[in-house]
């Protein structure tokens, strides 16, 4: 009887596993097919049955993108936004997180902490219009600055660094540093930063991916196509060269590659970045 039950349970588990496998195929298939289509000719893509494996038309497709814009330009633009923003955001967040987690008895600490947490619930759509107007007054429209400098203030980043530093840096270390006569900021640079490197990396990966994928704010800020980041360039290409599916798919693939490389190198940090928000 017991054995029978165990058998039934095993079969049930196997069934669930197979179900999950089938589902996972549906999640990967669009990406796989994108990469296959990127290497095919227009005729092959519209064939039935559709091609399942890679073809040899990738050079021609690349040529077709090059007729519209320099194929690597959006990637360079996206890097020019994402890298400085990430460095700035991680630094600003770590600094604030350090202050908030160390000086818990300072006057006004509680208010500052509360304000930082409140910024998490700040909906970006509320600021979209006035932010655009503000940028036009400063003269920053059609430049990368609006996507770098203001975006460096991230409530998510601060709250995260605050919890991360609080859980990884032992308080005794601060006392020891104080005894050695180290001031607050030099303690941050020379003692805290070396300890929290994994946390900085995780926040950096997460920020890079988020920034790479951002659409609405760049859409509002960047008017000229030479400045387009990857999502903007692709959206525009897919509208104007709608019929050339292989070229659009190749451009899409090229825009995805940097993020996928980053993920394959730092997937653990990326996942750590995801779950940190839930474990408060």
């Amino acid at each position: 009887m017991r054995k029978l039950l165990a058998n039934r349970e095993r079969r049930f588990n196997l069934l669930l596993t197979l179900g999950a496998v089938v589902l996972s195929v549906f999640f990967v298939l669009p990406l796989y097919w994108t990469s296959v289509f990127a290497t095919r000719t227009l005729g092959e893509v519209f064939q039935f049955p559709p091609p399942l494996f890679y073809g040899d038309n990738i050079v021609q497709n690349f040529q077709n993108i090059a007729d519209v814009y320099p194929p690597f330009r959006p990637i360079v633009n996206s890097l020019a936004v994402a890298v400085p923003k990430t460095i700035l955001l991680v630094f600003v967040s770590a600094l604030a997180g350090y202050g908030l987690s160390r000086y818990t008895r300072a006057p006004g600490h509680k208010t500052l902490l509360l304000v930082s947490f409140a910024t998490l619930f700040f909906p970006p759509s509320l600021a979209l219009i006035p932010f655009f107007l503000q940028m036009s007054w400063i003269g920053w429209l059609n430049t990368f600055w609006p996507l770098i400098v203001p975006a460096a203030a991230s409530g998510f980043g601060v709250v995260w660094m605050y919890t991360y530093i609080g859980s990884t840096v032992p308080r005794e270390l601060y006392e020891a540093a104080e005894m050695d006569g180290a001031k607050g900021l030099s303690t941050f640079f020379f003692v805290v930063i070396p300890i929290i490197r994994p946390g900085l990396a995780a926040l950096a990966v997460w920020t890079l991916v988020e920034t790479w994928n951002e659409f609405q704010v760049p859409l509002v800020i960047l008017g000229a196509s030479e400045k387009f980041t990857v999502p903007l360039a692709l959206t525009s290409l897919s509208t104007t060269h709608y019929s050339d599916m292989p070229a659009v798919m190749l451009a899409t693939l090229m825009g995805l590659v940097p993020v996928f490389i980053l993920f394959s190198l730092l997937s653990r940090q990326f996942i750590a970045g995801l779950t940190s928000g839930a474990v408060k």
């Binding site: 600003v92 967040s93 600094l95 604030a96 202050g99 006057p107 600490h109 500052l112 607050g184």
Partner: peptide, 15 residues
Amino acid sequence: NSALYIAVAPFLLLF
């Protein structure tokens, strides 16, 4: 505790 205010300042000012 002045280091706290200096540390939080860049974030708060930008925000």
